[in-house]
Simulated scan of single mutants.
Amino acid sequence: PVAVVTGASRGAGAGIAHALGAHGCIVYVTGRTVESDGTVRGTIGETAEKVSAAGGVGIAAPVDHADDEQVEAFFERVGREQGRIDILVNNAAIIRDEMMGRTKFWEEPINVIDTLNVGLRSSYVATVYAAPLMVPHGKGLVVFTSSSGSVHYAFGPAYGVPKAGVDKMAADMAFDFKDTGIAAVSIWMGSLLTDRVRAIVASNPEKFGHILDTAETPELTGHVIWEL
């Protein structure tokens, strides 16, 4: 099976790609982080290596999902190399640290709302270019990574609005995909044990330690996607 996981240099995307690799998938790993600068952990190359080590074939593909031309060129590449896509996971998103604090939206920089560009709009664009590689084969799965923050307050509007948006996008795309054999779903992930979350817990175990009681591994959603 051929899978594309966007925004997979680290976090949920990296875990999903890793899990799909364990199921033998060819996984294209997209993202902007090609080299680590020492302050950010995780690159698309490192994720691709984990995919291959797990039993799949990991392919690192540098893509800025804010650039439609780069996205179009990437899917053209997948078409040339594989001829189809079986699983598309729309996970790329700009998550700024300022958005994740306990501040009011007017106290945050305006650019936290860039989630509407890389997060919501980018998922639409990726699916537009992926669909022609799925429809002719009569089967496929389009996944949007979301959370329950789409229906309750989590980290403010810059977080919740794009989550609600991809939920609706999945529903409307599923309607258009009717009779094609392609399904579109939005998966609500729980708290994830990403490197970022582990660092937050380690910074104040007394305050944040409870997260460990219910947190999921980043790979869990990948296994759910495989079962779907």
Rank of each mutant, 00 (worst) to 15 (best):
T43D: 05
T47H: 08
H18M: 05
T39V: 05
I16A: 14
R84D: 07
A22E: 10
G15K: 01
L88R: 06
A19D: 09
N91D: 15
T43V: 10
I87E: 08
R96D: 06
E76P: 00
M100L: 15
I59Q: 04
W106H: 14
I85S: 11
D86W: 15
N90Y: 14
A66Y: 05
F105D: 13
I110C: 06
G24W: 07
D86I: 15
E76N: 12
L20S: 04
V63Q: 07
S36G: 12
A12R: 01
V112P: 05
R77L: 15
L20D: 10
G38V: 07
E72Y: 06
G101H: 12
R41H: 11
R102Q: 12
T43K: 03
D67N: 14
A61L: 13
V78S: 08
E98P: 12
Q82K: 15
A60F: 06
R41N: 10
A19Y: 00
A92P: 15
A93N: 13
V63F: 01
D64M: 03
R32K: 08
G31A: 03
C25P: 04
V57P: 00
A54S: 11
C25G: 02
I95K: 09
G31V: 09
V34K: 03
A60I: 04
G45Q: 03
I110F: 10
E81Q: 13
I113G: 03
R102V: 09
T39Y: 10
F75K: 03
